[in-house]
Nucleic acid binder design. Sequence first.
DNA 1: ACATTAAGTGATT
DNA 2: AATCACTTAATGT
Length: 210
Amino acid sequence: MREKLNSYFSYVFEDELLDEIVQVGTYKKLRENELLVDLGDQIKGVPLLLNGAIKIVREDKKGEEMLLYFLERGDTCASSFASALSSGKCGIRAIAEKESEVIFLPVEKLDEWLVKYKSWRNFVIDSYNVRLNEMMETVDTLAFMKMDERLYKYLTDKAQIMRETSLNTTHQDIAYDLHTSRVVVSRLLKQLENEGKIKLYRNKIEILEF
DNA sequence: ACATTAAGTGATT
DNA sequence: AATCACTTAATGT
């Protein structure tokens, strides 16, 4: 576990903090599509993402979904800090988008570390900042971009996060993430294919142009 | 061969 | 851009 931690966090945290993380953290490997956090869950620990990708989704009471952003290696779920420290409910759902490795940090240690380690404080503040920017970007996307642009952005963003040029997904899944209907996605995808930007298969989309 | 699920299409709002 | 109704294609049993 120490080696895995070192490979991504050795330049972020000081050695003593790394030691503590190894002691109190619990390592977990996530299967693809494994549910990490659900709506209204009490947060049991804050995750540090070693590798893989986690999808953060907002959902309303009717089960209507909307993708907020992805977490990548070295990220943490900023929203979980707030709910962990205030022991409130989490307003989001987190799903592993692919096989991922995380270390869960116990809630009790979080504010202790805030005063003890400046690298930890920086990390927390920084991830809040990164997340806020990410959120503003998605708001922009929602407010100012048309569906076809959003779709293309979604595809290229996701391909980058997954580090692949082709995605194994269905039109329906995309429709859930973008909060639209499958028919609309199918039509716009067809359009993108005609423009030569992508190639469509069953359960698979290949991106030809970034 | 049949059932199921994914994707394509025209028409309507 | 959403929804309906229907078709066609791919895949699993």
